[in-house]
Design a protein around this nucleic acid. Structure first.
Length: 644
DNA sequence: GTAGGGTTAG
């Protein structure tokens, strides 16, 4: 009666485009919304029956809607009725929209309510402040505070807390703390919510230590932390990969008699899964259900996303069915994760079917959903389709972001259309939305197109754009320079990145080492290796392999053997590959006794010779039956185990 | 009837 469900299920990609292209009519930027008065045409009232009038009024007053369309329909009816709802009723309605996170709608409807002659009170103004803060428009929020003071209302701790949160949302943690101090100096006593806003702001800003200090301090100041305080810290610890500390904090809160809720459990379960601690995560999930805490849409979204990323999309779909059976409504995040999962599992048709399903359920795809689809199309080489999807998203009022455009650039690079990628990049520069990823993609594209000078030029201009090259940038360019036959510049770049305090990753180092070994610059390679051994950045097996291989190919078998024996000491036990590398070295230099001894050792450890080693034995020592038998016997009993 | 903590993309 209110809103007919959109008709759906076109079968082809093209008709699906048409489906998506239908304007929604409710998406507009908050700025425009606030200053224009031309939103939401009212549903004609003249044809409404008395039954309709009662229905909408009841719906409005009981705020019993779950979707924006329902809410707007009931709003558009009641504003034509007499008498108009009271300010209290309008506030209740706006609060419901706030709970649905429809901040821009609240801002526009507030203006409309005011124009209907319903004057603001302190509650409606604090709702408005909250919405402006969530929309990251702190300046507007402060102008509403001015209005409160002008009307002679007394702002309370709730309003101040909201404003402090406004600073935090924008990442202005220092200003948040300053405002907090001013408020305390003004005689206002912060409560647990105020502290929580600051604690969360600090956590999000990467200052977990300071947040934990504040947790202790608030107790001293007579304000007991609650579930939200601990949850904010636990979540931040998980995101900082500190699982042990997060679990410590979890038991600390329970020891204090503060019960975890669904948010606490969801944070921890998510963190533990992400850190590969599946058993602990599942144990917590069971514990949560045992404690009669029902998983909500966030919990299900975490589970579905993890399953999808693990390639278990079938299980994710089952979880999706379960959540619906349990009455938990999926949202745009649920669908985006599942669509991504289907794309990852190469089920493109199924992912499109799901996209249709979500649109049919009146759940609008957002920038994440579209970016997932665009990235998949680009990786499949269907860049022009990706371009079309970008057009569609813009038509629907969803602004593509840096991630979306980066995927498109990568798509162009993958099909060798580097100049088109460059055009996108230039457009991004004009709009001020390039990031390090954009540079990495384009530098990689130029390197692969053998246009190393342009790659280097891009690299050099990064600091002017306020961007610091990361390890991926350096590694990409170093590899590119080496492949382009510019080892000196590559080495210089490597030294520079170390000099600038940027720690090269193991891949960059192995690229440099490999290059040095291949050009026979073994002194330089060994020097670098020695520095590494002494540094925090321990060489891994790949590095050892490169060095051993480099050394043995140059005939420096004694050196190579020494490095091989140092592996254990360096905390890196030799594996199948390491044994094969050193054995091949000895075989090439006809040191049969040493090769034989190492083959014995390798076989004892359960490893086996690879194709190259076997080939070398056969061609170099066709008459050495002993060594051949050893290999053959081992191969018979070998179960392919790769154990240490 | 107003404030705080958890989910999705490169």
């Amino acid at each position: 009666m209110i809103m007919a469900h959109r008709s759906i299920l076109p079968t082809t990609w093209r008709s699906f485009h048409l489906q998506l292209q239908r304007p929604l009519g409710t998406i507009q930027s908050p700025h425009l919304f606030f200053f224009t008065n031309s939103f939401h045409s009212s549903i004609p009232n003249s044809t409404a029956t008395h039954q309709d009038v009662r229905f909408f009024r009841r719906k409005f007053i009981s705020v019993s809607f779950t979707h924006l369309d329902d809410a707007l329909a009931s709003f558009n009816h009641v504003i034509h009725m007499h008498p108009l709802p009271s300010r209290v009723q309008f506030n209740r309605f706006l609060s419901a929209l706030v709970r649905m996170k429809l901040y821009d709608t609240v801002v526009s409807l507030s203006k409309k309510i005011e124009l209907l002659g319903i004057s603001h009170n302190v509650y409606s103004l604090s709702i408005l402040i909250n919405c402006f803060c969530h929309l990251r428009l702190v300046e507007f929020a402060f102008s509403v505070l001015g209005k409160i003071l002008k009307f002679g209302f007394e702002p309370d701790i709730v309003i101040f807390t909201t404003l402090i949160n406004g600073f935090c949302v924008k990442g202005k943690i220092d200003q948040a703390v300053d405002f907090f101090d001013d408020m305390v100096a003004g005689g206002y006593q912060p409560d647990v919510c105020t502290y929580n806003v600051i604690v969360n702001g600090l956590c999000k800003f990467g200052k977990i230590d300071v947040a934990i200090e504040l947790l202790k301090e608030m107790v001293e100041r007579g304000c007991e932390p609650d579930t939200a305080t601990y949850t904010a810290i636990i979540d931040a610890l998980c995101k900082d990969k500190l699982a042990v500390e997060a679990l410590d904090m979890f038991s600390q809160m329970r020891n204090k008699g503060i019960s975890p809720n669904v948010i606490t459990y969801t944070s921890l379960i998510h963190g533990l899964f992400k850190l590969g601690k599946q058993n602990q995560a599942l144990a917590l999930l069971n514990e949560m259900v045992r404690n009669k805490i029902s998983p909500d849409v966030y919990t299900f979204n975490v589970l579905i996303d993890i399953l999808c990323k693990e390639g278990m999309v079938f299980e994710a779909q089952n979880t999706f069915k379960i959540m619906i059976q349990r009455g938990v409504e999926p949202n745009v995040v649920t669908y985006s994760s599942l669509i991504d999962g289907l794309c990852i599992s190469d089920q493109w048709k199924e992912s499109l079917a799901l996209l249709k399903e979500m649109v049919g359920r009146n759940i609008s795809p957002n920038v994440f959903t579209f970016s997932i689809l665009i990235d998949t199309l680009c990786k499949k080489g269907l860049v022009s389709n990706a371009q079309n999807v970008i057009k569609i998203m813009i038509q629907r009022g969803v602004e593509p972001c840096v991630v979306t455009y980066n995927s498109l650039m990568d798509g162009y690079c993958l099909c060798n259309q580097i100049d088109k990628a460059r055009k996108v990049f230039n457009l991004m520069v004009t709009n001020g939305i390039v990031d390090v990823f954009s540079y990495n993609i384009l530098i990689n594209g130029y390197c692969n197109s053998k246009r190393i000078d342009e790659a280097k030029q891009l690299f050099d201009e990064m600091p002017q754009k306020g961007l610091a090259p990361d390890t991926v940038t350096c590694n990409t360019l170093i590899k590119g320079l080496w492949q382009a036959g510019r080892p000196r510049i590559a080495q210089e770049l490597f030294k520079n990145m170390c000099f600038h305090g940027q720690q090269p990753d193991i891949i960059t180092i192995s690229t440099v080492l490999d290059g040095l070994c291949k050009q026979g610059d073994l002194d330089e390679a060994l020097a670098l290796f020695k520095v590494m051994e002494k540094s925090w950045l321990k060489p891994d097996r790949m590095i050892y392999n490169i060095v051993i291989d480099g050394l043995s190919k140059e005939g420096l078998l004694a050196e190579a053997y020494k490095v091989f024996r140092e592996m254990k000491e360096g905390g890196c036990l030799p594996d199948n590959c390491c044994y094969n590398v050193i054995i091949q070295g000895f075989l090439r230099h006809k040191d049969v006794p040493k090769a034989s001894e190492l083959i014995d050792e390798m076989v004892d450890k359960g490893f086996s010779a690879d194709a190259m080693t076997t080939e070398l034995v056969v061609s170099l020592l066709p008459n050495d039956n002993l060594i051949l038998r050893k290999l053959r016997n081992h191969c018979k009993g070998c179960k392919g185990a790769d154990v240490e």
